[in-house]
Design a protein around this nucleic acid. Structure first.
Lengths: 219, 219
DNA sequence: AACTTTCGTTGATCTATGTCAATTTATATG
DNA sequence: CATATAAATTGACATAGATCAACGAAAGTT
């Protein structure tokens, strides 16, 4: 999850026969719910989204974030239903790739399948390394790595990588990183005091890419 | 990872053109190394295996275990290279599905691709839930869930699910669960005192399936 | 069998981070 | 704009689990 994925513009590489349509979403709107039957894959055009699941105690747990350029719901295609819910963090828009029926009928083309395999494979590989790192890293490392990953993703999209907008709340970050929201708050303010970042509300400015990398690597 | 997967016996569903061969492995032997080019998928016939990656500090980190019936290396197919190393925990044997060249040439059949997509999709979905749970659970919950998962997997394979053999060391478990090996030791001995399990060396006997489930759910 | 090395257990500390609580700041609503 | 609600910050405190250390038990090696 949370992976940088290129997606096809209408006409560029996506096999014909797939319904492509634009859709606007409001803040807080749900793209799809967990266990819902798979209908479509979504390419984020603008805004940001979070993927959540409910844990054993019905607590909402954030399992990923999506930024412009990311594909949402890919793994639903394999399972026939989505394995988490996705909610918009702010107003935005997505491009709906309506390939549900195609996949169900088994008539998907080679090209789609190959693309799917690639995407899923990358996600599996990424997940392994993420799980492995999250579980053993302390709060500083997790947050530094998180910020760097966000910055990298937005910079890959062309937007200046130094200034980035966190659509998500501290609670969402905390949930995703497996920390208490108070801890997230404390670490971020400390990072600011140490001159690593500048933070006001939802806008984060990267002051020391290198410093953050050092923190992420060892502390 | 660590997932229960059915795999094809020669002739049953696996498209022709795939090389199938049996291979024995010694304890500690490496099936393949991380970054090595993808050559084959392995179906575990007997024995057990661990998947490891090296973290930033060159520390070995266990990211999964494989039991008889599991498929190893699937996600390597998508990436052209394996994303972790796999090592045998004990003597055993695997069935080698030599589909590397097929995948490279792009001539893979629909059937293989569909199977791959299914497997990868399940792995992605599983990984999300595992990551989410591991990160927020305490040592007791992690170990109870781990034991239950192991028992479930072995029982699905027909072997009596109550007695199970842990091929891996406490350190391997600890690494996989994100704990110190001392903590694993302490929790396991406590579980034993509480009558949940009986443990001697590598053999574990499940005394209270229900009790473990309670621990896994909340404590 | 004697030796060496690895693995597991147990105890004593220490520390990172969770929890509880109070306050401030932001966001939404009438 | 005023008020209500939610989010973020900050402090004080509690605790799960890491770390350090010592010892005992397996298991591999000569």
């Amino acid at each position: 999850m949370c992976q940088v994925l290129d997606y096809a513009e209408p006409g560029s590489g996506v096999p014909s026969g797939i319904l492509l349509r634009r859709q606007s979403v409001m803040k807080g709107e749900m793209l799809f719910g967990v266990e819902q039957p798979f209908k479509a894959v979504y390419a984020v055009k603008s805004g940001s989204f979070k993927a959540v699941i409910a844990d054993l105690n019905q607590q909402e747990r954030v399992v990923g974030f999506y930024l412009p350029g990311d594909l949402i719901g890919v793994e639903g295609m394999a399972n026939r239903h989505y394995s988490y819910s996705v909610r918009a963090l702010e107003a935005g828009s997505v491009c709906v790739l309506d390939i549900g029926r195609l996949a169900e009928s088994g008539r998907s083309t080679e090209a789609i399948q190959r693309a799917l395999i690639d995407m899923l494979g990358r996600e599996v590989a990424l997940n392994h390394s993420q799980t492995a790192s999250l579980i053993r890293q302390n709060a500083d490392q997790r947050l530094a790595a998180f910020i760097l990953a966000l910055a990298l993703r937005t910079s890959l999209r062309g937007l200046g990588g130094d200034r980035l907008y966190l659509g998500m709340s501290r609670s969402d970050m905390a949930s995703y990183l497996g920390l208490a929201r108070e801890t997230v708050s404390r670490v971020l303010t400390r990072f600011q005091k140490e001159g690593l970042i500048r933070l006001r509300n939802q806008s984060l400015m990267l002051l020391s890419w290198e410093g953050l990398q050092q923190v992420a690597a060892s502390r």
